[in-house]
């Protein structure tokens, strides 16, 4: 493989690493931060399930991103990834709970604008709609779960220690589901732009099992996310567990499950097909923000508790992020594309 290909792929891998470092905390942050689950256990489970989610269910969201703009040259994909990574870094520094999802969409639109390719407005509107829907649905699911859990506990009279043991198990299972959903939903952000120009070829094992080039890319992206989880997520998890989310382990479980369901809903081809088969509107398969799903779920629980604990400023920051991050990512993307094509004489589109 050409060394330049590896260098260009590094842009995506960097994005994967930062996703693992930051978003794993949404899945296991409270469990690890409150010492309900050991970091090592969380990291292993998270890595395995992120990779599985990416390979098994990552295709749907990738296809949607592809429809938004099919970047057709490796340097172009590299610029988009770096632009997304940089803009996420800048916005995180500014204290906004943003996501790679919004950044990569902005970066792709930036590529479209720079190269004069058409942006599929219908797809763009669908994507923007899901960003708003994501925290709202997460909040509604969390409210439903919270009510159910409360009534379950009031009927079951579990001993505090028994509850602790169940909660640990539940947090681990919810974390595994969350990691799977994260991999399925967000792998598109990491590797989506490379799919149309994948440098890999399909590997067939005695015509029985085919490991497609797309799956190889997703495996690579999944591994990058896993490396992010192992190398950098510990600190973020402890921050999330101890500072941001002051909530009981049971409430944390509800947040993780709600977040995971939302990510899974927006990534599951099966559910989408099923809804279509019974004449219901299908769910668009769109990469959504893990962090914003978590914040949505927390706000949902906060509202049920009377709304006093709801930090509306965080909700406001999310809204700001929806607009500013894609714009910044698009601008950085265009700037990088300009540099790559004019200074390095690289072809950023075909």
């Amino acid at each position: 493989m050409d060394i330049s290909i590896i260098i260009f792929l590094l842009g995506g891998l960097f994005l994967g690493w930062s996703l693992g470092a930051n978003d794993a905390a949404n899945v296991f942050g409270t469990a690890v931060g409150t010492k309900m689950v050991r970091f090592k256990t969380a990291a292993i489970v998270c890595s395995i399930f992120v990779i599985l989610g990416a390979i098994i269910s990552g295709a749907g969201t990738t296809e949607t991103l592809g429809k938004l703009g099919a970047i057709n040259a490796l340097p172009g994909a590299f610029a988009a990834c770096v632009a997304a990574g940089l803009s996420v870094y800048l916005m995180t520094k500014a204290g906004l709970p943003v996501s790679t999802t919004q950044a990569i969409v902005g970066a792709i639109v930036g590529w479209n604008l720079y190269t004069g390719s058409a942006t599929n407005v219908k797809v763009l509107i669908t994507i923007l709609g899901t960003w708003v829907l994501c925290p709202v649905i997460a909040g509604l699911i969390a409210m439903g779960f919270f009510t159910l859990t409360k009534s379950f506990f009031s009927k079951r009279r579990l001993h505090i220690l028994r509850l602790d043991a169940y909660t640990r198990t539940a947090l681990l299972l919810a974390g595994a589901f969350g990691a799977y959903s994260l991999g399925a939903n967000n792998i598109a952000n990491v590797m989506g732009v490379f799919v149309p120009i994948s440098p890999f070829t399909d590997i067939s094992i005695s015509n029985f099992f085919v490991f497609s080039s797309k799956e190889q890319l997703f495996l690579l992206g999944g591994i990058a996310i896993a490396v992010g989880v192992f190398t950098y997520s510990k600190r973020v998890m402890f921050t999330v567990g101890n500072d941001l989310l002051k909530m009981s382990p049971v409430a944390a479980f509800i947040v993780v499950v709600s977040h995971s369901i939302v990510l899974f809903l927006f990534a599951s081809q099966g559910i989408s097909n099923f809804l279509q088969s019974i004449n219901l509107p299908s769910i668009p398969l769109v990469p959504v923000s893990s962090s914003q799903a978590v914040v949505g779920a927390i706000i949902g629980i906060g509202l049920l508790k009377g709304g006093k604990e709801v930090k509306w400023s965080v909700a406001g920051k999310i809204t700001i992020g929806w607009f500013t991050l894609p714009i910044i990512a698009a601008l950085i993307s265009m700037f990088l594309l300009f540099i790559l094509s004019n200074i390095f004489n690289l072809s950023v589109f075909i």
């Binding site: 050991r38 256990t41 001993h159 220690l161 043991a165 640990r168 198990t169 681990l172």
Partner: peptide, 21 residues
């Protein structure tokens, strides 16, 4: 697993429940 051996999680819990009772 879980910060302790998974096999002992529920047995430890039961033992502690008994002791507190």
């Amino acid at each position: 697993m879980f910060g302790l051996k998974s096999s002992s999680l529920f047995s430890d819990t039961k033992k502690l429940e008994r002791e507190i009772d």
